[in-house]
């Protein structure tokens, strides 16, 4: 662990007690995420990737092991609003405009009015939604709504962005477009991003580090440091390097699946 380590998990385990006996959502997971990393978590359903993200966010608590976020416990990190969390669904409030939705966390955190206005304007520009501030969520497409929810997570300048399959419900074309924008945004802002996904191309395209996970019990089977450069045009996905990384991810997923059967 270096001084630039943002998230550090050591032998992290989380067991849910259910009526059918204990479910090991996470078992002895260890991982370090460095500042500025774009880390993707990939694996089949039930591999604990979302649970891991939720533990980082203090939405779940581990049953064994240790985890720090920004050097403190996830709870302290949450209280100091160290991260922005983007959920699978945009979850915009239908009774608030796009601007009002982005403003919501700022109101809760007590930013003053003029600061709120400036921040809303800035992050909406960042996600390419300038001019949509006064629209209601239902007037926007699914992809635009998800961009608004990313703007909302960015509005209070947290250094960490936790994203739980944010583009899972969108079609391929919109998804490509948003992936490109997300990379662009990450490049400009130097944020640390943890990104849960089902899609191998998405994980390889976006990440500097790919964490392959497998289920029953949820664990890490491979951590791949991507050799791809930080600047990534969409057509990098046709290069041999890209395909090689994708191949290794696929192998990792297959191996993990083999263990479980």
């Amino acid at each position: 662990m270096t001084k630039n380590t943002v998230i550090s998990a050591t032998d992290l385990s989380l067991t849910f007690q259910t009526n059918d006996g204990p479910v090991h959502a996470l078992k002895d997971v260890s991982l370090n995420v460095e500042k500025g990393d774009f880390v993707s978590f990939i694996g089949p359903s039930g591999c604990g990737k979302t649970t891991f993200l939720r533990v980082m966010a203090d939405l779940e608590q581990q049953t064994a092991g240790a985890i720090t976020v920004n050097g403190v416990s996830p709870e302290e990190a949450r209280r100091s609003r160290a991260y922005g969390y983007v959920f699978q669904a945009a979850g915009l409030y239908p009774w608030r405009t796009i601007g009002g939705n982005v403003r919501l966390p700022l109101e809760i955190m007590g930013y003053d009015k003029s600061d709120q206005d400036a921040r809303v304007k800035r992050v909406l520009e960042l996600v390419d939604l300038a001019g949509f501030e006064k629209k209601f969520p239902w007037q926007l497409s699914g992809g635009m709504q998800q961009r608004a929810s990313i703007a909302r997570a960015l509005a209070f300048d947290a250094d960490i962005l936790l994203m739980d399959e944010p583009f899972g419900a969108l079609d391929e074309i919109v998804r490509d477009h948003l992936n490109e924008q997300l990379l662009h945004l990450w490049n400009r802002t130097d944020k640390t991003i943890c990104f849960v996904t089902h899609s191998i191309p998405e994980a390889v395209y976006l990440s500097t580090k790919i964490v392959v996970m497998s289920p029953r019990p949820g664990r890490i089977t491979d951590v791949i440091e991507s050799p791809l450069p930080r600047d990534r045009p969409l057509d990098i996905r046709d290069t041999a390097e890209f395909l090689e990384v994708a191949h290794r991810v696929r192998e990792g997923l297959r191996a993990g699946h083999g263990d479980a059967v």
């Binding site: 203090d58 939405l59 609003r81 969390y85 979850g91 009774w95 809760i108």
Partner: peptide, 25 residues
Amino acid sequence: SAMQLDQMRTWNATPSQTFWRLRLP
């Protein structure tokens, strides 16, 4: 939804903020 309540939690919202801004509307 559970997601909306979780979201409030990630912003460290107080119970009264959650009430006025989410539950009541």
